[in-house]
Design a protein around this nucleic acid. Structure first.
Lengths: 187, 187
DNA sequence: TCGTTGAGTCAACACTTGTTGAGCGAATGG
DNA sequence: CCATTCGCTCAACAAGTGTTGACTCAACGA
């Protein structure tokens, strides 16, 4: 009855468990407070094995947060708002844990900050490509950080005013504001 | 020529230097990476003295971030947007370092998170008081986290797209969006 | 069957952290 | 002038960190 699992498969599984535990912990408490021992414990494994598989805590973190450049192609000029709403998990209930892990540490861990800047930069580029006017890039940046703020308040800080609010309500209230930022009319 | 400084004054000065150094370091690298030794070093003082004056790192942090409930009175119904723009340092070039210290650690340090939630909660209350409709509180929360996002992107992450942008430009582009959030028309 | 590989553990290292208690020396006050 | 207070430093502790090397033992290949 003991499952006979080949070695390669077995290795891949434990490596996956470690990575999952790491993502989860990084997302929950951030880089500094997520200790290798805690990750190993959550994965049911010896701390030394984590090192043997990933080399260092830093590399473990990189592997844990490395995924999905998030957004897809550049959206059409009139879908920008919907695209922006889609990013950063306001539409879906929850952001993938790897993204949460990165966002959680972006203010205190240099490497995470670099990743965040790169990710947000790409997002800004995408959005800017769908806007017109010479303020395009600046407006794209504002659209992005606005959504960042909503995400931070909602998923990281878990402000009670935003919890248990159906995502459609958030989207409905945000849409006009985002449209105002995307439009090129000046006051 | 050696300045003769009375003991009480002398104590107050070094205590101030420590507090300044602490604020600065907390704001720059966050709670975890700001070590007591580094604070003491920056203040030109022995680490033990920091403990003797403030009791613990935790209490030092609290003292360092404790100030100004930020916003003033509840704004009039039509000044809400300007009030929101004023908070979180989009109008002024830079937020006070005590606020930066708190914001820097709010995602990774439990106590800072609590402070941030409390501060943002008060801000939300103030704004909600100036809005009408039953979504008032939710819209106030969104207004607040939107500004939080701008502040994080601008002052903490220091996104290049937002740096060196005159504050009036930010305000000008944000105004219509904030107005859309403050207004009660639904789509 | 037997030597080899490699997954996984154990115990320890080197270092940094927050924190403490004894002590020095100058300002204080009578 | 002397005893005392008190700002301040020194040296050390205890705990926790990332990281390492030697070791165990089951799976593997010939």
């Amino acid at each position: 009855m003991g499952e006979v699992v080949p070695r390669a498969e077995r290795r891949r599984r434990t490596e996956g468990r470690i990575l999952d535990a790491a993502r989860s912990l990084f997302a929950e408490v951030g880089y500094e407070r997520a200790t290798i021992r805690a990750v190993a414990g959550a994965a049911g494994v010896d701390p030394a094995l984590v090192m043997q598989y990933f080399g260092s805590k830093q590399q473990l973190f990189q592997q844990a947060v490395s995924v999905t450049p998030v957004g897809g192609e550049a959206p059409g000029a009139d879908e920008v708002v919907e695209h922006v709403l889609g990013t950063l998990g306001v539409k879906m209930g929850r952001l993938p844990e790897s993204s949460l892990a990165m966002l959680r540490s972006m203010l205190t861990h240099p490497e995470a900050a670099a990743s965040a800047r790169r990710l947000l930069g790409e997002q800004i580029d995408r959005v800017a490509g769908s806007l017109s006017g010479d303020d395009a890039r600046l407006r794209a940046a504002l659209l992005t950080v606005v959504m960042l703020g909503v995400t931070v308040g909602h998923q990281l800080l878990e402000l009670e005013e935003l919890r248990e609010v159906p995502q459609e309500d958030l989207a409905r209230l945000l849409r006009p504001a985002l449209r105002a930022l995307a439009g090129s009319e000046h006051s």
